[in-house]
Nucleic acid binder design. Structure first.
Lengths: 176, 176, 176, 176
DNA sequence: AATGAATGAGGTTTCATTCAT
DNA sequence: AATGAATGAAACCTCATTCAT
């Protein structure tokens, strides 16, 4: 749990610009978009990107980490179903691959935080009777990831997305 | 609807070997695996791969087409839930991306066939009362794709896969 | 000066069809057109092309040889200027490279025949006073090749071709 | 009419080395010589060639552009006949294809400049009586291209080149 | 003699990453 | 810290040529 030295102000600004640009570029072109394109969009030179993120994977991980952190922050404002809907909408918008498989050690912590937040919402939902008590966290996460991926790959319209989630929510509510 | 001339026996054998090798390679390394690797695994020269599949995309499309055709054949032997489970298991095994978005014109027909087959199973399930009558085909397909993608990306174990599908099936059965 | 064994009738027919196709293909697409394209156009398999012409260069040489032989036959019907005009028009039509550089041993003989024919026409032209007596065969051949190449590469219209040849003919006629 | 940003000193040096190497390589081996060979000769990595010239065609166009620009600069020092001779000698030396057909939009401007320069020399030659007044620029350019191509393809010796040009010059001078 | 599938060297091009400026 | 030119491995793909059928 090393603390990084604080960045110089301009470096911090560049880091943020790069992340924003990368988020936009990968959302548009998928994760195979080139790092040069990210640099161009961020208005910095390619070397600067690599100074901040030594490999392309580091850059992708950093995007994911920031995105996950944002989601965690937003969790408190939602109940489970609303949050679920929100996350799926996000995933469809930012095309960034929500690859929760924590093979990537760099994301283990961020994913853990999201899982905790969802766990809290799940407990609340079960307490209020909105979700059946037999449901456990892993399958909720699995469903979340699945629907995100599905929305990502298949270009659903809003209506289909709603109807799909309706089924999932009914399943969570039901006696199994 | 052009009919291709029938392939010579040796060419047909090589075509099949290449498809098998490609299926395995892409399952292991993802769709960015190199065509050279496929050739090596198939035991043919690189030119042979390109004679059969002029583009890497053609190769990927051919794999998907064969996979979809196989699934369609197997549909008749299952009810909706069993088929759903079977498809997800397949997807997890072959890592081949079940990208049903028929952006790829070459797959439109094959995807259509799968959709028809699922439609038939859905009608049967609704007739027998196993699935609520308000459910329509698009969301069933969306869920199928979603869970396949989820299984693909997240490396679920068998138990988690079963629990996740249990929720989906409950949702399909329920009053929405 | 080996005599080839006579070809079987069907083989002879194929040889001719291949030459015709090759002339057309190279005229349209330049000498970088693929040998497969020639085979396709000739309606034979690729192996047949290579049986008749063991290398692509052999095929190109054979085309040139036939083209040169035709020109030689036609020489008798023309005076020098008319023949010159005819050859240039041919070259512009068949885009086949009139590369008279007899680096290619296979063409030495055919080029020699053309040179003889032009020599005869030159002698006649000089006898009749149409060409200055100081002119010698090599520069006539050089000019012929030049204007052919020029017409080939620059896409002249008919009018420009005529005006260009007018200058050349005036030069041949003049006192130098 | 975009102005490119000025190159860094080292980049400019490499750009020039690549152009020099390419000129030499294509002169020796023709325009089908490989880009790798150019890189090797220039002493840079292959990627550097493609950073400067994203396409092989771009590289060929750049060579031609530089060559044409040099010729234009040298035009002022010559009269029409001397310039004509000079250009042909150049073409024979650098085997670079003087393909004036401005199919290649990238060369339209450079070719235009050469044509202007020749136009000026032609006007002077006509004013001084060295060239007949009926001659127009297009046929002069056509002859220039032709003799360059001829010299290129046929490997003339110096004497033949002189005698050939003598005929052309006589034609330009003559009453047509 | 003809077929056409297979070969494989070699071409162009891309792009993550390094490093001199 | 930032720049952006250079690197070079590796990707995709073409095509002249060979060879089993």
């Amino acid at each position: 749990m090393l603390e990084e030295p604080p960045l110089r102000a301009d470096a911090a600004r560049n880091r943020a610009r790069i992340l924003d640009a990368a988020e936009a570029v990968f959302a548009e072109l998928g994760p195979t978009a080139s790092t040069e394109e990210v640099a161009r969009r961020a208005g910095v030179a390619i070397g600067t990107v690599f100074r901040h993120f030594p490999t392309k994977d580091d850059l992708l991980a950093a995007i994911m980490k920031r995105l996950l952190a944002r989601l965690v922050e937003e969790a408190a404002e939602h109940d489970l179903f609303a949050f679920f809907t929100h996350v799926v909408a996000q995933a469809a918008a930012k095309k960034t691959v929500v690859d929760l498989l924590p093979v990537d050690i760099r994301l283990a912590e961020a994913v853990g935080h999201l899982e905790s937040a969802v766990g809290t919402l799940l407990a609340e939902a079960q307490a209020s009777g909105a979700v059946h008590t037999g449901i456990r966290l892993p399958e909720v996460m699995a469903l979340l990831v699945s629907v995100c991926q599905g929305a990502l790959h298949s270009g659903w319209d809003e209506d289909l997305q709603r109807r799909t989630l309706t089924v999932v929510f009914a399943g969570l509510r039901a006696q199994s």
